[in-house]
Computed example of a mutant assay.
Amino acid sequence: MIRPSTDLIVYLCREPVDMRKQIDGLALLVQEAMELNPFDKALFVFGNRQRNKIKLLFWERNGFVVWYKRLERERFKWPTHLDGDAVTLTGQELNWLLDGYDLNAMKPHKALDFQCVG
């Protein structure tokens, strides 16, 4: 299976998107609604209202690529714990989302900030 690189910048559109939109419509959505540059070295993620379909858009050297996935029984667990219209994810978080993990429930260890040893 083709998977995005884990070091790629990923922008997730939180609002549901009409899955009939093709490349031009998605690129315009990135530019106008998300206020981002669709030609950046980034991946833009869109989901439908039912959260059983997902489209990924990215610019690759000389043209746009759209990647589409439809689930037959389950639903994507759209992250609701993050703020903003466009949410930034890591490539690893996107892969977890594609695999069906609930990013809301996945909490890393608390970050520690030490000033000295001992």
Results as ranks from 00 to 15, higher is better:
residue 71 L to S: 09
residue 118 G to W: 13
residue 38 P to L: 06
residue 14 R to T: 03
residue 54 I to S: 07
residue 40 D to T: 13
residue 2 I to P: 01
residue 108 P to S: 02
residue 25 G to Y: 07
residue 42 A to Y: 00
residue 62 N to S: 15
residue 33 A to K: 11
residue 20 R to W: 09
residue 21 K to F: 08
residue 50 Q to A: 11
residue 86 A to G: 04
residue 68 Y to K: 13
residue 112 L to N: 11
residue 80 T to P: 05
residue 48 N to M: 05
residue 60 E to T: 09
residue 23 I to M: 05
residue 34 M to K: 05
residue 28 L to H: 03
residue 113 D to T: 15
residue 80 T to C: 05
residue 111 A to E: 10
residue 79 P to K: 12
residue 7 D to W: 03
residue 26 L to W: 06
residue 61 R to Y: 01
residue 23 I to S: 00
residue 11 Y to P: 03
residue 104 N to A: 10
residue 84 G to D: 05
residue 96 W to V: 12
residue 111 A to R: 15
residue 12 L to A: 04
residue 35 E to V: 10
residue 97 L to Q: 01
residue 110 K to M: 01
residue 72 E to Y: 06
residue 40 D to Q: 12
residue 9 I to N: 01
residue 80 T to M: 08
residue 35 E to M: 07
residue 27 A to R: 10
residue 92 Q to T: 13
residue 110 K to T: 12
residue 81 H to K: 15
residue 82 L to H: 03
residue 97 L to A: 02
residue 65 V to C: 05
residue 25 G to C: 07
residue 98 L to Y: 02
residue 20 R to C: 06
residue 7 D to I: 07
residue 82 L to I: 14
residue 104 N to C: 12
residue 5 S to D: 08
residue 29 L to I: 09
residue 37 N to R: 11
residue 100 G to F: 00
residue 112 L to Q: 12
residue 96 W to G: 03
residue 24 D to H: 13
residue 26 L to N: 01
residue 110 K to H: 05
